[in-house]
């Protein structure tokens, strides 16, 4: 039994220590918002926050998350939508939507670290894959969210 803190709740899980956190989140804890895209840390669909840092959960052993705060897309916002999520709606970013949980988690972590990223900062940090090609809108939405955050 491992004890995890996820989205502010304490949960017990009975899994092998080396199970990727992604599958514990999805199959054991039944939080399906975090997605599986590649399993090898190459796409970012599985991005969650561990103690506020973005982590690709498909390549992160569950045992290493014990004692940390895990946040998934389901727990990103306590009340209503965050500025990032709002910008995702106003810029009409998602297409199929499959990559977007991971995108939003990665971008949310970036904006916390760097509240007004340049295009270069965005290129360097957000390396998630969107097969539908929503990138131009993602870029616009990141700037829009940064602006909204600054005004708030």
């Amino acid at each position: 039994m491992l004890t995890l803190t996820i989205n502010g709740e304490t949960r017990q899980v009975d899994v092998e220590d080396d199970t990727p956190l992604l599958w514990v989140i999805r199959d054991t804890l039944k939080l399906p918002g975090t997605k599986f895209g590649c399993g090898v840390s190459a796409c970012g669909a599985c991005t969650v926050h561990i103690d506020g840092e973005p982590v690709r959960s498909c390549s992160f052993d569950v045992k290493d998350a014990v004692g940390s705060d895990i946040t998934t897309i389901e727990g990103l916002s306590k009340n209503g939508l965050t500025p990032v999520q709002q910008a995702w709606i106003s810029e009409q970013v998602p297409q199929c939507g499959y990559c977007q949980s991971g995108m939003i988690m990665a971008v949310s972590a970036l904006l916390k670290e760097n509240p007004s990223p340049t295009d270069q900062d965005i290129d360097d940090t957000i390396t998630n894959v969107c097969r539908c090609g929503s990138y131009p809108r993602i870029r616009k939405a990141i700037h829009a969210a940064a602006k909204q955050q600054a005004e708030a």
Partner: peptide
């Protein structure tokens, strides 16, 4: 017009095939 499916695609609630959850399901 704003797309009807987008709100569910920014908060992780949109249900894809891979997210199907049924009682007593195996993998």
């Amino acid at each position: 017009q704003e797309r009807l499916d987008i709100p569910a695609k920014v908060n992780g609630t949109a249900g894809f095939g891979v997210d199907v959850e049924l009682p007593d399901m195996a993998y």
